[in-house]
Structure formats: structure tokens, C-alpha cells
Design a protein around this nucleic acid. Sequence first.
DNA 1: CGCGCCCTTGAGAGTAGTCAAGCTTTGTGG
DNA 2: CCACAAAGCTTGACTACTCTCAAGGGCGCG
Lengths: 235, 235
Amino acid sequence: MSIVDVSLGRNLASLELFDALSPAALDEVRALARFKHLTRNTRIFNQGDGSVRAHALIEGCVRISQSGSDGAQVVVRFITRGEMFGTVALFTDGRYPADAETLTECTEVSWSEADLAQLMDRHHRIALNFIRIIGKRLQDAQNRVRELATQRVERRIAHALLRLARRSGHRNSEGITIEFPLRRKDIADICGTTLHSASRILTPWEKAGWLVTRDQRLTLCRPDEIEQIAENGET
Amino acid sequence: MSIVDVSLGRNLASLELFDALSPAALDEVRALARFKHLTRNTRIFNQGDGSVRAHALIEGCVRISQSGSDGAQVVVRFITRGEMFGTVALFTDGRYPADAETLTECTEVSWSEADLAQLMDRHHRIALNFIRIIGKRLQDAQNRVRELATQRVERRIAHALLRLARRSGHRNSEGITIEFPLRRKDIADICGTTLHSASRILTPWEKAGWLVTRDQRLTLCRPDEIEQIAENGET
DNA sequence: CGCGCCCTTGAGAGTAGTCAAGCTTTGTGG
DNA sequence: CCACAAAGCTTGACTACTCTCAAGGGCGCG
């Protein structure tokens, strides 16, 4: 077993899907896994593609986005190290409902639908983990629906930034830096607004020193102020 | 076994969650089930309640709605005969994320979280069915996010009505009647708009003869016209 | 008959989208 | 290393969709 295998093996155990699995079971999981290294800005799958696989990210950042027949686009989710993606299509209609594209260099691992079904069959725990994961996603999605339906753009952006910071933020001397590259357009597509509105809202925040964009990375310097907006809808 | 038991037993087999289960397995399922009859406008559970159960509706209609801390409300989903509800909370945080209220007289059946886990453990098929069900819901939710983010109210209402008609519509001489009582406010809360906007949009459609409201039941007389609006965003 | 619930309609205001132009940063090739 | 192109961002002017506030009508029920 090479050094790479060892380290990947350890990483598999840290995926939520394989939480609390025995070493023997993990061996089986690893035997069926397909690892892949990807460069920046690579499509992993496209909306509508068949032959779906269950994916997990070992390292890097991936953007999941969905477009309607009219071309309008929303970002469904950002994926970071340790998270699963492409899971919605599994065991339902067998087509990816969204696109996945790498934002950085990535290492991903994936299993075919049939192999995953077999693993679940032999290790009941995996099925339960899977249920927990998509249950949480469903809650997230429903909260997002409520936000979109009831809150205004400024507040949605504040919420989105806080959520991203909480989930994938690194604390440093300036504040909390969100680890993946975010263009204004991405922020807009997360919040269901336009590039223009996003820009109009973020610029004053930058001017006020509440956040900084550098090299497409966002740092929240004053999360407290942004929290204010998220809560009250005003400064 | 009484006549009621027999008929309920048959009904259990028709629930998607217990699809393709052996008669023996269904017996186990039934043994752990708790049946309940409910009158109109009854709360089944409240947002935030603990000790969650897995629910399924044998007969009737239920509205699932969620409110934010500011009181704003959205309808998450309408449940009709044969569907599950209250599923999101299972195996995640153990609190209902929404309210459930009956819109008609109802018969529901439910299982405790522990009992369902045990059933899944013994009958792997149930877990797979469960995954399929919430996978589909997740897709629905994501599509809804996209609609809210990219489409205007009129189009969202058209889509919502068509979806409801497709899922719970009965064809008759006038058109397709949606089987549960829908107030204007409900339609608004489904589409993330206000009672006023919903009314302003629906009234012209009624005037044009595309739909009729009678006794809080909606009938789509001209689904083709509504389809037009859903597709093109114009008449 | 009066009250409550639901729906409709009008007027006005404001949020956010569209269109358009110019600026900054990044990347690439000479 | 510079020049130029491409991509991303900001900003202004304008428009319009949708919300808010307000008033009134219809219907059923006690």
C-alpha cells in the first residue's frame, strides 16, 4: 500500500457517509472507490448527465449550480473537503439535476450507484448516514426557500456570507476568511439576485471596513455588523 | 382482525415507504404503527416540537408550513393520501422544522423514530425507499429555490397550480380540480408572495375563464393557458 | 343582525431588475 | 516586460414589479 493509499484511506473514514464504520467495512468501501485528481475550473458532471455516481471531495472546492430552461442560474451549494455531492440523483431518476465545477485544484472520490447500493446493503450504517446527510440538506433547502420568499436581498446576502463563513471560514488576524474563491456573480447566484445588486450591496460594506475581498477570497472583518443586518434587516 | 385493520393494512402496503415489502414485513410495520383520526384544522405537530415521529397520511389533506423568527410564513408542502410527512426531522436533529395542520378530516399513521430505525434495520428495503422519498423532496426543494430566485410571481403561481393539479388533481367535466381547500393566502405562501399579489393575479384568470374557485377548491379549466404563462412568462 | 373571515381593489412607495458605460484586474502572447 | 484582450466589478439612470397601507364587499355562522 503506497503512502497515497494510506492517506486516502484515512480520509475516507473522515467522510460523514462512512462515519462509525469498522475498519473492515472501510476496506470494502475503499476497494470500490474511484479516485480522481482535477485541475481548476473542470466540469465534474453536467446537469442532465446519466450514469450518476456518488461523489465526495477529499480536497478542494466545488460549485454546484443549476440552470433553468431559460438560462437563469442559481448556485445550489458549495462543496468543501469532506462533503458529499451529486447525491440527490442517487436512487431517484438517475440524472444529475445540476452542474458541478471545480473552483480550485481538487481530489475527489466516487462510487457507482450500484456499488454504493451494495455497500449500503452490507453495511446498514452507510444507509443511515446517507439519510442523515440528505435530511440535513433538505432542511437547508427549505430554510433557503423561506429566506428567498420572505427576506430582501441585503439580508439574504448577509445570511449567505455568515453561513459560508461558519461552514468554511478560517479565523485569522483580519477576521474570518471564506476558503473558496467567490466572484460577485457567485454571491448573486447563491442569493437569487443579480450581479449588480450584489455589487451595490457589498461595496458599501467594503467601504465601511466590514469585509475585504482579496484574490477572490472574502474576509469578514466585522461579522457582528453583518449579523446585525442578517437579524434586523437594517444597520 | 377487524374490517378496519384489514383496510388499514392494505393501505400501509400502498405507502411508498413500504413499497415492495413482503407481507410478513408489513405485519411488523403494522404492529408498530399508531393510527389516529383527526378533525379538520387540527395541529398534528408544531415547529420546534421534540420527540418526532414518522408520519403518513391514509386519508385527507395536511398543510406543512414553516415560519421564521419574524413571523413570515411559507407553505412547505401539501400532503395528500399516501404521502409521508414529518420526515425531515428524522435522524437529524429530532425537532420538527415546520407545523403540520389538517385541512380536512384525516386519518394518519405514525411510527416512533426508534421503531422506524428498527424496521429499517430489519428490512433494508425501507431505508432505500426512505432515501428515494427524501431524495425526490430535495430535488423539488431545489427546483423551488430556482423558481423563487429567477421567476416572477405570475409565473411561479402558474407553476404552483400546475404542480398541484398534476399531483392531486381530479379530472372532471369542467377541468382539473385540486382536491384540497386552498385559500388565496395558501397560494401566496406557496409562491412566496403576498395575499394581495396572488389575488391580483388570480382574479383576471378567473375572469378569463381559465379557472374557477368554488368552496375553496380550485378547478383549472384551461390548463393550456396556464401552461403558457408558466413556460413563457406571458400570455 | 352583526361579527369574523376571506377576498378584491386602489393608490403610492420602494426594492430590485435592466440597460449601458467605464473601470480594474488577470491572463496571454508578442 | 509590455500590450492587449478578456473577465470581473462598479456605478448611473431608468423602469417596473411587487409590497404596503387602506378601504370596502361578500359570505357564512352564531
